[in-house]
Write a protein that binds this DNA or RNA. Structure first.
Length: 473
DNA sequence: CGACGGGACGC
DNA sequence: CGACGGGACGC
């Protein structure tokens, strides 16, 4: 609730909630209040008077809490005679104080609304949806002129301003209903925003990952980490803050082939903030260092990962070349999908059958089955705030993950930030998602069993979820 | 460390 | 014809 007793806080908020009255000079504030109060919450009445004579200039303003109240009062009171023997009053929606214009606001400008609708919405759907707010003159869906496909936008023209105002105030907020700007010939509105937007699924093309080779892997491209230094199957993980062995285990076990993980402890058994990891093959170790060196775990704490001597001699030129080949194949697997993985199994000596399945713990996430999304115009009952580390995953991947808890309405990533919002139609589903994913690392993730054209690397992305601060529900 | 998008009509 | 006051912003 705004405090409308504080004058500086109100201009014309909400829009079109203030009336401009032309009356006989004899009409008083009391009379106006008496006749306009029945239409709603009158927040302010101001009868304009001459500074010197204090005589009314026959002009008044009546501020309502809602536009629909003001519109209804206008419709009912325009042309009425407030006091016997005085001239009929005129009632208009007042021009906003900042506009400076004194032109009457026409009904034309107050009866047509502009809405966002599902692409599947027909004009009949539109009419059906909005007729509850009043008589509709027409409802049209904006379509692509050549293809005839809906742009997901529409106009609804009502007969009365109060009906349009009611629609704007009360319709589902996903319609984002606003008053339509009157049409002009100068319309630079040929911008084809929506049709241009549809073909942005680049990240789904096989071989065209959302994380192109090199973008996250400076050491590979720059060649600083691994071609000059030792490469082994053993890694030392160092952390400034104590991290439980289970956490380290879970993290490094996300990469297949881990066969050993142990915290280094001092003589009293206290953790020294270091862990030793061994993989069954070079490729896994290279990959683990590549992905987890510098990774923040827990958030704010950078893990450092380095090769340590595993006692094998790989100093010969041939050995080095073999290692580089292995490393390159690991990388190609990461970014190019199962064909690469196939390569790894044979060349890097990793075979699923040769490794006992380790029990997954802690950071591994078992996801429910895929569920249908909620209708796009569903009321959002709960929203999760998500922080990604180090960076957000592609929206389509996130949708695939978050839809599995049910009633997902939308995944929205804040542009240029590592945060986003996950909207659910059902509070329980949001809570389930939060319970399952809060603080978790999503492992190497297969988009679906039936669509194994490629898999996505989710390793190293930690979700933190909370309810957003204040969300008008 | 990490906070809130997108929108326009053949005369 | 008929267009913009009063009061005091907040920790």
């Amino acid at each position: 609730m705004e405090d409308y007793n504080r004058p500086s806080s109100y201009l014309d908020d909400p829009p079109n909630s203030r009336l401009f009255l032309v009356t006989s000079k004899s009409i008083t504030e009391d009379t106006i209040r008496e006749r306009f109060a029945p239409f709603g919450e009158v927040q302010d009445i101001w009868v304009v008077k001459d500074k010197q004579t204090k005589e009314s200039k026959g002009v008044s303003f009546v501020k309502f809490a809602k536009s629909s109240q003001a519109c209804n009062a206008m419709e009912e009171m325009h042309g009425k005679c407030l006091v016997e023997g005085t001239k009929p009053i005129k009632v208009f929606i007042a021009q906003s104080r900042s506009s400076g214009s004194h032109r009457d606001v026409e009904d034309e400008e107050l009866t047509r609304i502009f809405v966002m609708i599902p692409k599947t919405f027909t004009e009949e759907d539109l009419k059906e949806t909005f007729k509850t707010y009043g008589d509709i003159e027409y409802a049209i869906v904006i379509k692509n002129k050549s293809t005839g496909e809906s742009k997901g936008l529409g106009y609804v023209r009502f007969h009365k301003p109060s009906q349009a105002a009611k629609a704007i105030e009360n319709c589902d907020k996903t319609f984002r209903a606003i008053l339509a700007e009157p049409r002009t010939k100068n319309s630079s509105a040929d911008n084809d925003y929506f049709s241009n937007q549809r073909s942005d699924h680049v990240g789904n093309e096989p071989g065209l990952s959302a994380y192109p080779f090199g973008a996250e892997s400076s050491s590979y491209a720059a060649g600083d980490g691994w071609n000059s230094d030792m490469i082994t199957r053993c890694l030392m993980v160092s952390s400034r803050v104590p991290v439980a062995q289970e956490q380290i285990y879970s993290l490094f076990d996300l990469i297949p082939g881990m066969e050993y993980c142990e915290m280094q402890r001092d003589q009293y058994g206290f953790s020294k903030g270091q862990a030793m990891i061994r993989y069954s093959n070079l490729g896994s170790a290279v990959y683990a260092k590549e992905k987890l060196n510098g990774f923040e775990y827990p958030p704010g704490n950078r893990l450092s990962v380095a090769f340590i001597d595993d006692g094998e001699d790989r100093t010969s030129p041939v050995g080095k070349m073999a290692m580089q080949l292995v490393a390159a194949q690991m990388m190609s697997m990461v970014w190019n999908g199962p064909s690469g993985a196939q390569l790894m199994k044979t060349t890097a000596g990793y075979a699923a059958s040769s490794l006992p399945q380790k029990p997954r713990v802690q950071t591994d996430v078992v996801l429910p089955s895929h569920k249908k999304l909620a209708a796009p115009d569903s009321v959002v009952k709960e929203r999760l705030f998500v922080i990604f580390n180090p960076s957000p995953l592609p929206v389509d991947i996130l949708e695939d993950v978050f839809c599995r808890f049910g009633s997902l309405v939308e995944v929205y990533l804040v542009p240029g930030r590592n945060v986003g919002y996950i909207k659910y139609a059902d509070r329980k589903h949001a809570n389930d998602a939060m319970a399952a994913l809060h603080g978790k690392v999503l492992p190497h993730w297969h988009k679906s069993l039936s669509d194994m054209t490629h898999d996505f690397d989710m390793t190293g992305r930690i979700f933190t979820m909370t309810r957003p601060h204040s969300y008008g529900q």
